[in-house]
Design a protein around this nucleic acid. Structure first.
Lengths: 106, 106
DNA sequence: TGTTATACATCGTAATACGATGTATATTAT
DNA sequence: ATAATATACATCGTATTACGATGTATAACA
């Protein structure tokens, strides 16, 4: 899979992964795996970015000796997902341009 | 529009723009404009990349005192478009993951 | 004479995905 | 007992990349 093609979906995908229930890094990766594989370093970069953009909030929880950071989606984050849906309409138009079969010139 | 979202479409879009007829930089930009806006510096970067990847070939033509470089899609380039179509199936699966509405937990 | 359109080209930069690597504990396999 | 795997987060360096800014040059038009 072309990496570039995934790029625009990464942020929205992480937001979607925590949309219905707060989650933490390791689990987010596992939940997304069937749809989109992402390395840990990539995920943590994205989580930092989303936090900086006020799309998510973080809360640390001690769990069996290990640290867990639970991420919670904010109103801003939910809005980001809606924005994504809007953008997708344009993306589909571009997709149609790319895949259209020209008729009448052969 | 989120820039990241466009990234994966750029190369395929340029290939699509010359698929049915050889074209040159300035015209490619104008043809794509209704679907996807791209700066000149971006296009020439992409054309260089596609040429390096043997997706297109170039031929210079003198036209009214000005230089024109006509780009022609190769078999490799056509294959790239087909690859894009294949990848799109996965992209759609990811899209569904992002936009799905969870039922039964509220 | 000045502006816009046509046409290609390069440089610098900021954003970004990811491999490599590191820390630390718990569980499972050999 | 020991090795390997799973869990869990974190950082550094790097290559790719889109694009604004800028440059060169001619033709058409106001």
């Amino acid at each position: 899979m072309d990496i570039q093609l995934k790029r625009g979906l990464l942020d929205a995908c992480v937001l979607a992964a925590i949309k219905n229930e707060d989650s933490y890094g390791y689990r987010i990766i596992k939940d997304m795996k069937p749809y989109l594989e992402m390395s840990e370093s990539t995920l943590y970069t994205i989580l930092k970015r989303l936090e900086a953009g006020n799309m998510i909030t973080v809360r640390s929880v001690e769990h069996e000796g290990r640290l867990r950071k639970y991420y919670h989606i904010t109103r801003e984050g939910l809005r980001r997902i809606e924005e994504f849906k809007e953008d997708w309409k344009e993306i589909n138009a571009i997709y149609n341009f790319i895949t259209r079969e020209e008729t009448g010139n052969e």
